[in-house]
């Protein structure tokens, strides 16, 4: 394998990894803090992509579309949390899996009714469509680089938010002892709603960014949801740091698996990776709680 091809594949792996991290961070935060398994997280990804595609058609501006989709999914996530999901925080995981499974069915069908079964394709504006030569002689698409930078920025932002800010302190405190922090006079309900909405919005952002790379279609959230679940399980459910490293690990191994292995094995790479890791460490790489 040439050094150029290798570098390109590493970048592709990073791009997939950062995208997965946008999904995984929200899912793992919601699990770690509210103890909620949310299968409908993939639906937020799908809704983000559809919101962005529609707004892009209306306004012609990618920035406006992305911002609108982010806010749209934020509101949708918070509304769902307030209306339904908050009453499932104290239920067991099986109930949560089933209820959010019901939401997936609902959202997939809703999208099919509103936008129709055919796939949308988003065209990139000229400015983002080119490529740059990071290493002389090896051009790489600008758009994919933007995704990597955006993903890393979000990762850094989350790190600062959680471990350096006051809100982050409350979130961490709420995760380790909910009753105590309520007794100290913090409105944990509102905090949870905000965290849930933020996680949903990040999933929506991932969907928005995936739009120009993949087809925007019904059920697009399902496959990415399963990959995301693999990520957070490998990383240790509830650990944002684990999710970050596992995202990159899964992104890279999936990319290289597809390049090096025969087709039948390539699709299975990440699942084999997960099975091996769980066999060695049943709690994932970075167990969040003890």
């Amino acid at each position: 394998m040439g050094i150029f091809l290798f570098a390109e594949q590493v970048l592709n792996g990073l791009q997939l990894g950062t995208m997965l991290f946008l999904m995984a961070s929200g899912l793992t935060l919601v699990f770690g803090i509210m103890n909620l398994v949310n299968l409908a997280h993939g639906s937020f990804y799908m809704m983000g992509a559809y919101f962005a595609a529609t707004l892009f058609k209306l306004t012609g501006s990618l920035v406006l579309a992305a911002a609108g989709a982010f806010v749209g999914v934020l509101v949708l996530g918070m509304a769902l949390e307030i209306a339904i999901l908050h009453s499932f925080y104290r239920r067991d995981h099986l109930d949560q899996v089933l209820a959010t499974f019901g939401m997936i069915l609902f959202f997939n069908e809703l999208v099919r009714m509103v936008w129709g079964p055919q796939a949308y394709f988003l065209a990139l504006p000229e400015a983002l469509n080119g490529s740059v030569e990071l290493i002389p002689g090896a051009p790489y698409p600008i758009y994919r680089l933007i995704i990597i930078v955006a993903g890393l920025t979000v990762a850094l932002g989350l790190y600062l938010l959680i471990s350096r800010s006051r809100i982050g302190m409350l979130i961490r405190a709420g995760a380790s002892n909910r009753t105590m922090i309520e007794a100290l006079g913090v409105n944990i309900r509102v905090l949870f709603t905000v965290v849930f909405g933020l996680g949903a919005a990040l999933a929506g952002l991932a969907g928005t960014m995936a739009g120009p790379l993949l087809a925007v279609q019904v059920g697009m959230g399902d496959s990415v949801l399963i990959t995301t679940l693999v990520v957070i399980v490998i990383g240790g459910i509830g650990s944002v740091r684990g999710a970050f490293l596992a995202s990159l690990l899964v992104g890279l191994s999936d990319t290289f698996g597809r390049m090096l292995l025969p087709a039948s094995l390539a699709e299975m790479t990440i699942y084999i990776l997960m099975a091996v890791i769980l066999y060695r460490r049943p709690q994932g790489l970075f167990p969040a709680h003890g």
Binding site: H93, V97, I226, V233, I237, M274, A275, L278, G284
Partner: peptide
């Protein structure tokens, strides 16, 4: 949850 996910993965 790990059990749920690992059976899903298989």
């Amino acid at each position: 949850l790990y059990f749920i996910m690992i059976t899903l993965a298989f």
